[in-house]
Design a protein around this nucleic acid. Structure first.
Length: 644
RNA sequence: GGCGGAGUAGCUCAGUUGGUUAGAGCGCGCGGUUCAUACCCGCGUAGUCGGGGGUUCGAAUCCCUCCUCCGCUACCA
C-alpha cells in the first residue's frame, strides 16, 4: 500500500485560527482525503508552535501561566479544524516532551557533526567607540572610526552552517523542478540563495519558555529551529524508526508564501542535508487572502475573518445546514482562486459561487433527478440496460483530469472539471427529456437515461468528497447508497458502477438558493447596527501609548564605512548608558551639525541590526521616502523627557 | 537599487513549443423547456490581448523600450 505524508506548518499560538491558517489546512485535508479515497495510507499532520518569549508575555498579559495559555489556544485550533471538517491524523504541539527531546537530540547531533558551532554574534568590538564590528568592516584589522585596535567579543551564540549547504541546495532545487512550487517562488528562492546565505543563528539567550540548548544553560534553541523539527518528531524521529521509515519524507509540505524562502526552502532542507535525511518531495507555497478592497487581512487591520463565523452567517442567510455552509466555504476558497496566487475574499463572491455553482448546478441537478426517479421508477435504481453508459467517456475524461489537477494542487481547475461533468449531466437530462419518454411510454430508454444521470451524480459525489466531505455524504445518503452500505472509493469513479435495486432517499434541497441582493442589504444593515469602531486605518489611544517617545541628545555621530545613507548616532536619553541608533540620514545631514541636537526617539523599538550595526531605537524625521527634516524640540529639555 | 512576476471581454481569469475568424465562467440580452431551487438548455453581446517600436509570410505568444501593479531582496528602523 502506498503511503502519503502531508504537512501543514504548525501555527504560532500568539494568534487565533483565522482564514489564512484554515486555507492551508483545508488544502492539506483535500490532498489527504483524496489519497484516502484512493485506498492509500495517509498521514496528515498539523499542530501548534508554542515556544518563544511572545507566548510567555501574552500569557503574562492575561495573568495566566504559559502552559494554561498554550493549552487554551491549541484547543481552539483543534476545535476549528473539527468544525471545518478537517480530518487530521496527528496534532503536534512543540511543548510535547517527545518533540522537545527530538529537538535537543537534533541539536546535539548537529553540534557533534560541527554543523552547529558556537560563534560570536558581533565578532569585533571597539571599546572607545562602543561599537560592534563585523570582519568586513575592519580596516587593516582596526576600527574604521578611530583606527585603534579592536577586541574580539565573547558574546556567544550557536550557528547552523546554512552557508555550507548553499551549493547543494541550488543543485537540489535545479535538479528537482517539482521541489518548490509554484515556479515563480522557485525562482525567488534560487536568487535568494545565489545572493549568498548567512549562517543562521539558532540560539538565543535563555528564556524560561523555550527549549534549552543541551549542556548549555545560558542558551535556548531558536523557535524556528524548534518549529521545523516538528515535521520529524511527528513521525517518531529518531527513536521509532519503523514509523519514521514508513512515512519519511513528506510528499507535500504546504505553507504560506511568507515562510518559504528563509525557512522552508533554505534552513529546513539544509538541516535535513546535515542530518543526512531525504528532502521532502514538494514544498507548495500558497498565496494570501485579501479583502475585496485590496487590503491584506491582518490582525492589526481588524479585518480578520473567522471562517466558522463566516460559515454560520452563510448558513443563516441561505438556510443551509452549518455543515453544508462550511463545505461551501471550503469550496469557495479552493475554487475561487488559483492555488498559489493571492485571492480576494468578499461576501458577494461567496454568495455568488454558492448560488451559481452549488445551488443551481449541483444542488438543482440532484433535486430534479431524484423526484424523476421516484415518479417513474418508484424510487428504485434500475438495471443499467443495453442503452446505458452514454456518459462513460465524459466521466472517464473528467476523472483523469481531476486526478492530474489534484496531484498538482490545482484545486480550482480540478473543481472546474467536476463542474463540466455536472453541466454534461444537466444537458444530457435536457436532451433526453425523460418526462417526454415517459409520455411516449418508452420505459426502457427512460430507465437507461435516469440510470446514467444517477450514476453520474454518484461519481460527482465521490469526486467532490475531498473538497466537500459532508455534502458528499449527504448526496450519498440521498442516492440511497449510505443505507445500502456502499463505501466510497475513488476507483468507482467510472460509469455503470451504480448498483441497481437501491431505493433513493430525496431530502430537502442541500443548497437553498440565496436572494443575493436582499442578503447583501441585510448584511450591510447588520454592519451598520454594530458600527465597527474604526476605519481600519485608525488606531486607539491605547495602541498609540504602546509607542514610547523620548527626547534624546545626540552626543556622537559617525559615518558607517561602506554605507552611504547611514549614520551611527550615540544618543543620551537620560539612561545609565547612552544608546547607539542607526539612522538613514547621511545624505542629508553632516555628522558634525548633529552634535548636541535634541531629537525625538522611539525608545521601545525592537533591536535591529543594520549593515552590521546594532540600532536601539529610531529617530523621527519628516519626509515620506527621503528624510527632509529632523523632528527636534523647540527648547532645551532634559534627555529622556517623555513625549506624548 | 537588484532580481522576478503580472497587465487579455463589465467582473474573475485560461491561453501549451509564434499559425487559420482570441477562449471559459459570472453578468447582461433573446429564445427554448417545465422534471427541478425564477432552475436547466440553446443562441447572442462585447476585447486596437497595457502604450510604442522591431523580427517574421504570420505574434497575446519572440526581441527592444516606456507606463502601471505586485512579490522577493537590499544601506528605508
Amino acid at each position: 500500500m502506498k503511503n502519503f505524508y502531508i504537512t501543514t506548518p504548525i501555527y504560532y499560538v500568539n494568534d487565533r485560527p483565522h482564514i489564512g491558517h484554515s486555507y492551508t489546512t483545508i488544502a492539506a485535508d483535500v490532498h489527504a482525503r483524496y489519497h484516502r479515497l484512493r485506498g492509500e495510507s495517509v498521514l496528515l499532520c498539523t499542530g501548534t508552535d508554542e515556544h518563544g518569549q511572545k507566548v510567555a508575555l501574552s500569557a503574562e498579559a492575561q495573568g495566566i501561566q504559559p502552559q494554561e495559555f498554550v493549552d487554551e489556544v491549541a484547543g481552539s485550533f483543534q476545535q476549528m479544524w473539527q468544525r471545518l471538517h478537517i480530518d487530521y491524523d496527528r496534532f503536534i504541539r512543540t511543548t510535547d516532551p517527545a518533540h522537545m527531546a527530538t529537538v535537543q537530540h537534533v541539536f546535539s547531533q548537529l553540534r557533534e557533526s560541527d554543523d552547529i558551532y558556537l560563534g560570536e554574534y558581533e565578532g569585533w568590538y571597539c571599546v572607545p567607540c562602543e561599537t560592534y564590528l563585523t570582519e568586513a568592516e575592519l580596516t587593516d584589522g582596526c576600527c574604521p572610526e578611530c583606527e585603534r585596535q579592536v577586541e574580539q567579543v565573547t558574546e556567544q551564540a550557536y550557528f547552523f552552517r546554512t552557508s555550507a549547504y548553499a551549493d547543494r541546495l541550488i543543485e537540489h532545487i535545479e535538479s528537482h523542478p517539482q521541489f518548490i512550487q509554484p515556479k515563480s517562488r522557485r525562482n525567488e528562492v534560487l536568487s535568494f540563495i545565489k545572493e549568498g546565505l548567512r549562517d543562521a543563528c539558532v540560539s538565543r539567550n535563555r528564556m524560561e519558555w523555550d527549549i534549552p540548548v543541551p549542556d548549555d544553560e545560558s542558551q535556548s534553541i531558536y523557535v524556528w529551529f524548534d518549529a521545523l523539527i516538528n515535521y520529524l518528531s511527528q513521525v517518531g524521529y529518531p527513536d521509532e524508526l519503523d514509523e519514521f521509515d514508513k512515512w519519511w519524507p513528506p510528499q507535500i509540505q504546504l505553507l504560506g508564501k511568507d515562510i518559504l524562502t528563509r525557512f522552508h526552502a533554505t534552513l529546513w532542507p539544509a538541516m535535513l542535508m546535515a542530518l543526512d535525511l531525504p528532502i521532502p518531495e514538494m514544498l507548495f507555497a500558497h498565496g494570501w487572502w485579501i479583502t475585496d478592497t485590496g487590503d491584506k487581512i491582518s490582525k492589526s487591520k481588524g479585518n480578520v475573518l473567522d471562517p466558522y463565523e463566516v460559515s454560520q452567517e452563510l448558513a443563516e442567510i441561505s438556510g443551509a445546514t452549518t455543515a453544508v455552509a462550511v463545505d461551501s466555504l471550503r469550496y469557495f476558497l479552493l475554487r475561487e482562486v488559483t492555488f498559489g496566487l493571492d485571492g480576494s475574499f468578499s461576501r458577494q463572491a461567496l454568495l455568488s459561487r454558492f448560488n451559481a455553482d452549488l445551488a443551481n448546478d449541483l444542488g438543482n441537478l440532484l433535486n430534479r433527478t431524484l423526484p424523476l426517479a421516484e415518479r417513474y421508477l418508484n424510487g428504485v435504481i434500475p438495471e443499467p440496460g443495453p442503452g446505458a453508459g452514454e456518459l462513460r467517456d465524459e466521466i472517464e475524461r473528467i476523472r483523469t483530469q481531476v486526478e492530474q489537477e489534484i496531484t498538482q494542487s490545482n484545486f480550482s481547475v480540478a473543481l472546474m472539471g467536476i463542474w463540466e461533468l455536472l453541466a454534461s449531466a444537466n444537458k444530457f437530462l435536457d436532451t433526453r427529456a425523460p418526462w417526454t419518454l415517459h409520455k411516449e411510454s418508452k420505459q426502457v430508454e427512460l430507465e437507461a437515461v435516469l440510470y446514467d444521470v444517477l450514476d453520474c451524480i454518484r461519481v460527482v459525489a465521490i469526486m467532490i468528497g475531498p473538497f466537500m466531505p459532508k455534502v458528499s455524504d449527504e448526496m450519498w445518503q440521498q442516492l440511497g447508497l449510505q443505507s445500502a452500505g456502499i463505501e466510497k472509493s475513488w476507483d468507482d469513479c467510472c460509469a455503470l458502477e451504480l448498483p441497481s435495486g437501491i431505493t433513493v432517499a430525496p431530502g430537502r434541497p442541500i443548497f437553498p438558493r440565496v436572494d443575493i441582493k436582499r442578503a447583501m442589504d441585510r448584511l450591510r444593515a447588520d454592519s451598520k447596527e454594530q458600527p465597527e469602531p474604526a476605519a481600519a486605518d485608525m488606531i486607539s489611544i491605547d495602541e498609540f501609548e504602546k509607542v514610547e517617545l523620548c527626547v534624546g541628545t545626540i552626543v556622537e555621530a559617525h559615518r558607517i564605512p561602506g554605507a552611504d545613507k547611514l549614520l551611527r548616532l550615540v544618543v543620551d536619553m537620560g539612561e545609565a548608558d547612552t544608546r547607539q541608533i542607526v539612522a538613514g540620514i547621511a545624505q542629508q545631514f553632516n555628522p558634525r551639525e548633529l552634535l548636541e541636537v535634541q531629537v525625538v526617539v522611539v525608545a521601545n523599538l525592537e533591536l535591529a541590526t543594520i549593515h552590521g550595526v546594532e540600532s536601539h531605537g529610531m529617530i523621527l524625521a519628516a519626509g515620506a521616502n527621503e528624510p527632509e527634516a529632523l523632528v527636534i524640540t523647540d527648547s532645551k529639555c532634559p534627555p529622556g523627557t517623555i513625549i506624548r
